[in-house]
Design a protein around this nucleic acid. Structure first.
Ligand SMILES: [Mn+2]
Ligand SMILES: [Mn+2]
Ligand SMILES: [Mn+2]
Ligand SMILES: [Mn+2]
Lengths: 223, 223
DNA sequence: GAACTTTATTTGGCACACCAAATAAAATTT
DNA sequence: AAATTTTATTTGGTGTGCCAAATAAAGTTC
C-alpha cells in the first residue's frame, strides 16, 4: 500500500478541531505539536501541505485555522471514532476507559458506507461512552455546552473549557492550583463538611472550594 | 504514528501463507511480487528483513518458506480478516462480495482482545462468508478440503487447488483451456443437454465437459 | 556448449512522515 | 532600546516501503 489512507492527516485535523473547540486563542504549530507530541518542524511541514489541499488556512499572524473543508473532514473522523467507541462498549462489552486507543485505530478505516451502517446498527446513538456528541452523517454535531464542575459527577474525566468569572483574584487562584482551559479533572470527592471539592489533575491532587468549582466550566473529556 | 503497525508485513505473511496453501512448488520473490502486485526487488528487500525477524526462511534454492512463527502470524491476520467479514455480513448487512476490501483494512487493527471479543460476539463462527475456515484463538484452522467442481454451485468464485487425474491428455487439455492451480473460476451455467460446464475465468469464458469438471478440485476463493 | 531467454539481485532514487540542531524572527524583560 | 528569552523556520538528516533500470546468474534452446 505505502499510502496509508490519510492516517496522519486525519489525526492533524482532529487535533486542530479540538483546539478550536477549546477556544485556544491562537493555534500555532507548537500548540499542535504539543497536542500530537510531534516536533514543531514536522507540524509546519504538514500544515503547508494541508494548506495546499485547502484543509487549513495559515493566517498572517502565524495562526492555523481549519477551513470549512477541513472541519468537515475532522468531523467525519470524530464521528467514526465515537461510533466505534459505542460499538466496543455496547456490543463487545469493553468498558468506557478501554476503548479510546482501539477507536484511535478504527477511526481511520476508510468507508462511509461502513460507518453509516454501524451508526444504524447501533441505533443512531447521540453520544459516545464518554458523553461526547456524535456528529451525524452530514457532520452536524450537538453544540457541546460547558457546565459548572458543581453539576458533574465523580468518576469521569472532564476538561476545563473556560471560567464563569474573570476577576484577577479568581484567575490568580486558578494559577495557584494550576487549573487552566484544557486541564483534565476528575472529581475524587466532595467534602461533606464544607462542600469543597477534591480534584485529581493528572497526578496532582487539589482541593477547591464550592464557590470556585461553580465557576469552573467543563465538559466531558472525549479522550 | 509513522510506524503503522505491521500493515505491510502482515500482507506479505498472508500472501506467503496462501501461496503455500496452494502448494505452489517454489515460492519465489517474483511469485510473491505477482501476488501482491509489487516489484520483485521490493519483495526481496522485505524478505531479507523478515528473515532477520525469523518470519521466513530463505532457502538455498532461492525459495521462501514461512517459519512456524511466520505461519502463526499469518493465521492471526487471516483470523481477523475472516471474523471481520462475518461481522460485516451478519451484523451490518453487507453482501459477501462487498466485504473483502473492508476486511483488508480491518484485519490490521492491532488487538487480540478485540478480535477475541468479536469472535465471541459472533458466536465463534467456523467459516467466513466465502466458506473459508476461520482459525481459532490458538491458530488452529480446519484443513481446507478441495472438492470437485461438479459439487459446486453457480455464483461464488472458486479457486483451483489440484486435479484428480494426472494423465497427459488431461493436463494438456487443461493447458488448452488455461486452467491451472490457482485459477479462479465461476460456474456460469450447466448445459442441460450434455451436462457440460460454462465457466468464467477472469474475462475468459470456457466450456468444459462434466468429466473434466469432476477432475478439477477447487475450494471457495477467499478473495 | 554457445546463444538466447528468463529470473534474481544490485543499485540508485523517490515520497512520506518524522526529528534534531541551527538560525531567524518575535516577544518580553530589564 | 538593548539584552534576553521564547517561538518559528530552515536545513540536513532518518526509516520504511516502494520502483525502474542495470547487471548478474540460471535455465533453455539450438
Ligand atoms: Mn476516544
Ligand atoms: Mn487516530
Ligand atoms: Mn476476504
Ligand atoms: Mn491487508
Amino acid at each position: 500500500m505505502v499510502h496509508f489512507a490519510n492516517y496522519s492527516e486525519e489525526n492533524y485535523l482532529k487535533a486542530l478541531y479540538k483546539l478550536e473547540l477549546r477556544q485556544v486563542k491562537k493555534i500555532t504549530n507548537s500548540a499542535v505539536a504539543k497536542a500530537l507530541d510531534l516536533n514543531p518542524a514536522t507540524v509546519l511541514e504538514m500544515m503547508r501541505k494541508m494548506e495546499q489541499k485547502k484543509l487549513v488556512e495559515l493566517l498572517p499572524d502565524k495562526s492555523i485555522k481549519l477551513t470549512e473543508k477541513g472541519s468537515k473532514k475532522a468531523l467525519r473522523t470524530i464521528r467514526r471514532h465515537r461510533l466505534w467507541e459505542v460499538f466496543l462498549v455496547k456490543k463487545l462489552g469493553f468498558t468506557w476507559n478501554e476503548v479510546h486507543d482501539l477507536a484511535e485505530q478504527l477511526e481511520h478505516i476508510d468507508s462511509d458506507e461502513l460507518v453509516n451502517r454501524l451508526d444504524e446498527y447501533l441505533g443512531f446513538p447521540p453520544f459516545d461512552p464518554h458523553g461526547d456528541p456524535i456528529p451525524d452523517k452530514l457532520g452536524k454535531i450537538k453544540k457541546q455546552v460547558a457546565v459548572p464542575l458543581t453539576s458533574c459527577q465523580q468518576g469521569p474525566t472532564y476538561q476545563v473549557q473556560h471560567f464563569a468569572e474573570t476577576s484577577d483574584a479568581f484567575l490568580q487562584y486558578l494559577g495557584q492550583v494550576q487549573i487552566a482551559p484544557g486541564s483534565k479533572i476528575k472529581i475524587v470527592g466532595i467534602n461533606a463538611y464544607d462542600q469543597s471539592y477534591s480534584l485529581q489533575l493528572g497526578r496532582r491532587s487539589v482541593q477547591v472550594s464550592e464557590k470556585a468549582a461553580a465557576n469552573i466550566l467543563v465538559q466531558p473529556a472525549d479522550h
